[in-house]
Simulated assay, not measured.
Amino acid sequence: MAVSLIRLGLRSVAFNLERSAVIISSSSAQNQFKLFHTKPVCQNGVCYLQERGEELETTISVLRRYSKHHGRPEEDRRKRKQGQDSDSDSDSDSDTECKTLERSEFWRRKMRTVHNILDVDKDGLISFNDFVLFGERFKALGHLDDNQAKEFSDIIKLTWEEQWGAIDPYNFVTVEQYLEDMHHVLNDKTLKKKAHRWLPYLFKAVDKDKSGFISVKEFKLFYQCLGLDNEHAAVAFAVIDINGDGKLSMKEFVKLGKDFFFTEDESRVSKMFWGPLIEI
């Protein structure tokens, strides 16, 4: 009888121990489940996980993510123009387009010049905010109607997203990355056609009298929006106005703007379009 009672007592103790273990294990699992599935609350780069009314603080190290075409898949980024050279590009009638993997130093100087222009705040990097400020300069002239101004803003945003990906405060484009990006754009037939669709809006923005042509005086407005002075505008206009009629049509303006990016021919007058080239 005594032996039976002892055995019964031991079984009871073992059962209670197992039950306690299950409860503890279950509680721990629930806590862990709750921890992993609790939605974080983030403020000023610091995220908090709410656990039983207490805040478990986790500091997030915010790194600048320099643009590396992260708006496009990796395999698409690395795609070269192999297999595309046989296709003609109706957007440009230049017979000196860059079709090789290596670009000339002349072309690189031109791209550095444009990077400097688009770097409106002059911090050495292009951001979406620079793109917005660039557009605001032209819209501030007051020559675009409401619909044109909205279309211009939409195209600026779309161009950024297609070429440089995410719109966020930490997405920047360095000079070298801009060179690489533009090399990729010009080797991609689809992107190439879209890359400079905002040029007509620059023309309309400086066509003050809405005549369909811009004079040297209106071309100076263009250079002012680029952050360049009137002297450079007068010199450039005299060079690019090949027929000497004192005016540029939209077709001439857009062609010059595109040709600046497409050609490596140093004799082309389009090299003057975006102002004096940056010295190395």
Score class of each variant (00 low, 15 high):
R197T: 11
W107D: 00
S86V: 09
M111C: 02
D89C: 15
E279P: 03
R103N: 12
C225S: 06
W164F: 13
Q32R: 06
A234P: 00
E74Q: 12
K139M: 14
Y178H: 09
N16L: 15
K79V: 05
K251V: 12
I24W: 06
S88M: 10
S249W: 01
K192Q: 09
D181Q: 10
D76G: 13
S67G: 12
E176T: 08
S127T: 13
T59S: 13
S12T: 08
W198A: 12
S215M: 10
H37Q: 06
R72I: 14
E252F: 07
I60K: 13
T59Y: 03
D207Q: 11
F219S: 04
D87N: 14
Y201S: 14
D146P: 00
N171S: 13
D145M: 11
L141E: 00
Q177C: 05
A14R: 07
L228P: 00
S12M: 11
V3P: 01
K204M: 10
I278N: 07
G53C: 11
I280A: 14
D76E: 14
S92T: 13
K255G: 07
D209H: 07
E180H: 05
V185W: 04
E55R: 15
V3K: 10
E54I: 09
K210H: 07
K220W: 00
Q84I: 13
F138K: 11
D265F: 07
F203T: 03
Q30R: 13
T38D: 04
S92P: 02
Q43R: 14
N171L: 06
A238C: 11
I278S: 08
S127M: 08
Q32N: 10
L199R: 04
H232A: 15
S215K: 03
C47N: 05
D188A: 11
S92G: 10
K99Q: 04
D123K: 13
R197Y: 01
D95R: 12
K251C: 06
L141M: 01
I155D: 08
L133M: 13
A29D: 06
L10M: 13
E252I: 12
H143P: 01
D85A: 12
F36Q: 09
T38G: 05
V173P: 05
C47A: 10
M182G: 03
V41H: 06
A195L: 05
K204P: 00
N171Y: 03
F237D: 01
F213N: 07
L221R: 03
K110M: 03
L141Q: 05
Q43F: 08
V175Y: 02
L17C: 08
A29L: 14
D245W: 02
S86F: 04
Q163M: 15
L10N: 02
V175C: 10
V13L: 10
L191A: 15
D91E: 06
L186R: 07
K247E: 02
F138D: 04
F219H: 04
L158K: 14
T96N: 03
D119W: 02
S94A: 10
E102Y: 08
E75W: 12
D245Q: 07
K192E: 06
G227Y: 04
V269Q: 05
K271C: 03
I278F: 03
L186D: 01
R19Y: 03
H115Y: 03
E162P: 01
R65M: 11
M1K: 08
A149M: 02
S86G: 03
R72W: 00
Q50N: 09
R64A: 12
K139E: 08
S25R: 08
L144W: 00
A166D: 09
K251N: 06
